[in-house]
Design a binder for these strands. Structure first.
Length: 424
RNA sequence: GGUGAGGUGGAUGAGUGGCUGAAAUCAACAGUUUGCUAAAUUGUCGUACUGAGAAAUUGGUACCGAGGGUUCGAAUCCCUCCCUCACCGCCA
């Protein structure tokens, strides 16, 4: 959520930047300014009113103490009109604040200056491509066929138990999941992240804090009986650790890493996009989160990008890094790098990580501040990234590292975790 | 799920209608003292919105779990909800 004080003083700039995101309702910016102006006027009047009431109440208290009961009773009448008026003003203020919030909540974050102009995924900027794209033999298999032959996971079984998109991993397939999670977590802890295991459901306030509500309500599974939401990513519970907190600058950046299952409804997906592990409703992921000083958040973003790169390199997977264009980046992000790995048999790039700087978009919602040198409170910057999401990593591992004999080689960095060097 | 107790500032904790934005202690921060450490001592020590000011600063308002209510006036009284703790029940 953008800060109203900033919009107030930079309305034209805000509109300009929002246009880069192809945001259509630029008129909302002006509306916000108008509503805010009204809000301040109402607030001033209300505050003045309350000040008068407080003064009278104080006088009455004095009179009572002096035993001048009649005078005190006479004074009481004076407040009646004020009270009536204050009540009306309070109502107006509350309506006005709701109106303002409804507008602010619809405004996306401003894109950073580095964000490429563009509308579609084709406009994303490839900033790096690394690793060797393997030249596969003729009858190389897609990961779902490999999984079937080697009995690594079973999608049909998941359908019976739950529904489409809930894979059952088994045998070495299950062990591979566990190994990857440990591998990713160990790397994160090694890089200075504090490991946490967060709740897998969150309340409404947390979902609002990171921006899932109200914007992406349909993405989450909603437990209506208890008003909980299944987390679509550990970003939600982990970032909310610092909700309503004032941090000490010397403790920043705060670095968290968390493994969690992720639950996504993914309504409306179909076709080859959802084949095999390409898109599922439940998957495993290790997420890294940093709470950073505003002046240093872009260094932090680069550091996180390098961390993810390191993981992909160790897994010997060909990957590329994209800087998302204005039209393709998410609502709350100021700058996003997507990581894609090459899916050899499908011959396409699969997104396995998204690393973003949200600047103050989330912290303004969460009221997460820090105290700077002059003891003033300022909003922190929040960043997060997948490091990494498992299903497409598994898809890519299977497809890229398959051999003509139908087995799959495990990258050496992962072997200490799996305890085996090939899937057969 | 049942019963009981309770939710006050970074922590402990006082406060049953006006003198309480909130005692006291501890922690923290700044200074004094000291050869260093320790001790002692003085001061500072919540957040948000908002008015004035270039700024330092300063005026107003709100906030004592959340939301309503009573009252001229609420941390204090009433109602609803949430949470914590203890005991019981159930249970990985």
């Amino acid at each position: 959520m953008l800060e109203i004080a900033f919009i107030r003083n930079n309305a034209e700039h805000v509109k300009e930047r929002l246009a880069v995101k192809h945001f259509k309702e630029l008129n909302l910016v002006d509306e916000a300014v108008v509503v805010d102006e009204k809000r301040r006027a109402i607030q001033k009047q209300l505050d003045d009113n309350l000040a008068k009431q407080n003064a009278i109440a104080k006088e009455i208290g004095e009179l009572f103490k002096q035993g001048k009961k009649d005078e005190a009773d006479a004074k009481k009448a004076e407040t009646a009109a004020l009270k009536e008026e204050s009540k009306t003003l309070e109502e107006q203020l509350s309506n006005n604040e709701t109106e303002l919030k409804n507008i602010l909540v619809r405004l996306p974050n401003l894109p950073n200056a580095l964000v490429p102009v563009g509308k579609t995924p084709e406009d994303n900027l490839v900033v790096k491509e690394a690793g060797v794209i393997p030249a596969l033999f003729p009858d190389a298999l897609a990961h779902w066929d490999i999984a079937k032959k080697l009995n690594l996971f079973d999608l049909e079984l998941g359908v019976k138990i739950t529904g489409a998109g809930f894979p059952v991993y088994r045998g070495k397939g299950a062990k591979l999941q566990r190994s990857l999670v440990n591998f990713f977590l160990d790397n994160a802890v090694e890089a200075g992240y504090h490991e946490v295991i967060p709740p897998h459901m969150v309340n409404e306030a947390s979902a609002f804090g990171t921006g899932q509500l109200p914007d992406k309500e349909g993405q989450m599974y909603h437990i209506t009986l208890d008003e909980f939401y299944m987390i679509p990513t550990a970003e939600v519970p982990v970032t909310n650790i610092v909700r309503d907190e004032i941090l000490e600058e010397k403790n920043m950046p705060v670095k968290f890493a968390a493994y969690s299952p992720c639950f996504r409804r993914e309504a409306g997906s179909y076709g080859k996009d959802v084949r095999g592990l390409n898109r599922v409703h439940q998957f495993e992921k290790v997420e890294i989160v940093q709470i950073a000083h505003p002046d240093k958040s872009y260094e932090v973003l680069d550091e996180m990008v390098r961390h993810v790169e390191g993981l992909l390199t160790k897994l010997e997977l060909p990957y590329r890094i994209l800087r998302l264009c204005g039209g393709d980046m998410s609502f709350g992000s100021a700058l996003t790098y997507d990581f894609e790995v090459w899916s050899a048999a499908q011959k396409r790039w699969l997104e396995v990580s998204s690393v973003s700087n949200f600047e103050t978009f989330q912290s303004n919602r969460m009221k997460t501040r820090f105290r700077d040198e002059s003891k003033k409170t300022r909003l922190v910057h929040t960043l997060n990234g997948s490091a990494l999401a498992l299903p497409r990593i598994v898809a890519s591992l299977l497809e890229n590292h398959q051999s003509t004999d139908g087995t799959v080689k495990i990258p050496s960095a992962l072997q200490p975790y799996t305890g085996f060097s090939i899937l057969s």
